[in-house]
């Protein structure tokens, strides 16, 4: 309930249109393997235009390509075990001030729940930017089309994954 409250207290709550999982095709050569996999939330461009913070995020995503790692975190929560429906609260201060809640219908993500339980790197991007990611891209492009942050492990997702 507290997680749900945190999600709804965010400046803006929106529904993720799609989700994606990014994985390198071969072992990372520079050793920064804890970055992967990256779980991406895809939201509608128009949904972001409704608040100032959303517009700032949209402008950042549409700006010059650069890898953005938020000083903050993505906090996962289970809003409903029926489905399931997940909530993701984005809280960050720099380089973008963000307080956004994303509701994620996770019926098609049952295979990814175990990975989400471990607290992966999570990113957020828009439908228009995500178009460039489809089919596979190079690492720099992939990471510059999405705003990233770390997430905390959510052990209850493990049991949810095992139950489903």
């Amino acid at each position: 309930m507290a997680d749900m409250l945190a999600t709804t207290m965010a400046n803006q709550v929106m529904i993720a249109r799609e989700a994606m999982v990014l994985r390198p095709r071969r072992a990372d050569r520079d050793g920064s393997t804890d970055l992967w996999p990256v779980f991406g939330l895809i939201v509608d461009d128009h949904d972001l235009t409704r608040t100032r913070q959303g517009r700032d995020l949209l402008a950042h995503l549409n700006g010059p390509s650069a890898v953005t790692l938020l000083d903050g975190s993505f906090v996962l929560s289970v809003l409903s075990e029926d489905g399931p429906v997940l909530g993701v609260t984005v809280s960050a201060t720099t380089p973008l001030a963000l307080s956004i809640g994303v509701v994620l219908p996770a019926r098609s993500l049952r295979a990814e729940l175990g990975m989400l339980a471990e607290g992966p790197t999570i990113g957020i991007t828009t439908l228009s930017r995500a178009q460039r990611l489809r089919g596979g891209v190079d690492t720099q492009t992939a990471l510059s089309l999405i705003v990233l942050a770390r997430s905390e492990p959510l052990p209850c997702l493990t049991s949810l994954a095992e139950a489903s």
Binding site: A19, M20, V21, L22, R23, P24, S108, L133, G135, D138
Partner: peptide
């Protein structure tokens, strides 16, 4: 000049 794709992206609806 586009570098080769080295990241797989799987999209879930």
């Amino acid at each position: 000049a586009r570098p080769p794709a080295d990241v797989d992206v799987v999209t879930r609806p």
